[in-house]
């Protein structure tokens, strides 16, 4: 059994009188400590897949198994615990708490985790050791995203989920951020799932899941993904 397994997962939303199927019959499996990309145009259903995997949303049909545990049937409280213990999130818009310093934002993870990593050390690792007392408002987008990565990893999660992590950044900064995610995840042995509409990014993944109209159009495995430095977009 794979580390992450989606089996016939569907997600419907009721908008007014109509039912919209955001995700239809999605099945795939991902290995532990792998680097994966979900690729698709906006509206393809990729964020919905990520949200369900992250325990922020539940499928209307099908099963999602993470490390042997079926999370598709968990209630609100258990999902919170699941997110708390197993998941690290990196968002397109960083979502730092503006009233906490960089260090404090990372320390948030310490507040709630069983085995958190040292916040200051994580900030060093993302290259922001000297900015730890700055507030998000005083930092650039790339720096904020790096704080956000440090925060996600300080929780010492099993899975790191990134929703368009470079979406709000220029390509140079985006590349630095992606490399950081890739390198740290590899060093720490984390499973990573990145959602993006940016096709070249997929070249760095072990597994690429192409999505279109809520369905998987293609799953591609690569033995030798390209290093981030070689990718151009």
């Amino acid at each position: 059994m794979s580390f992450i397994q989606f089996e016939g997962v569907e997600r419907e939303y009721i908008v007014g009188d109509s039912v919209i199927k955001a995700v239809k019959e999605v099945s795939f499996s991902l290995e532990d400590k792998s680097f994966n990309v979900v690729l698709g145009q906006s509206g393809a259903g990729k964020t919905t897949v990520l949200n369900m995997l992250g325990g922020m949303d539940s499928p209307t049909k099908g099963a999602i198994t993470v490390n042997g545990e079926d999370i598709s049937k968990l209630g609100t409280r258990e999902l919170t615990t699941y997110r708390r213990d197993k998941i690290g999130f990196v968002f397109q818009f960083y979502n730092l708490v503006p009233n906490l310093t960089a260090l404090e934002n990372v320390q948030l993870a310490e507040e709630i985790c069983k085995n958190p990593l040292d916040a200051a050390e994580m900030l060093e690792r993302v290259g922001l050791g000297d900015r730890k007392n700055n507030f998000p408002g005083q930092m650039s987008g790339g720096e904020q995203q790096r704080v956000s990565i440090a925060r996600a990893l300080a929780k010492n999660p099993q899975i790191l989920l990134c929703d368009e992590p470079t979406g709000a950044l220029d390509s140079g900064t985006g590349r630095i951020v992606l490399k950081l995610i890739r390198d740290i995840a590899r060093d720490m042995g984390k499973t990573v799932v990145v959602v993006t509409h940016n096709a070249p990014i997929a070249e760095m993944a072990d597994t690429v899941i192409h999505m279109r109209d809520g369905q998987i159009s293609e799953i591609r495995h690569t033995e030798h993904p390209r290093p981030v430095e070689e990718i151009v977009w």
């Binding site: 919170t80 615990t81 979502n95």
Partner: peptide, 16 residues
């Protein structure tokens, strides 16, 4: 609201 949503995603429970 935004801070609260962020914390909720991070895995903070309601009572926290």
């Amino acid at each position: 609201v935004r801070d609260l949503a962020t914390l909720e995603v991070l895995g903070f429970h309601q009572k926290e």
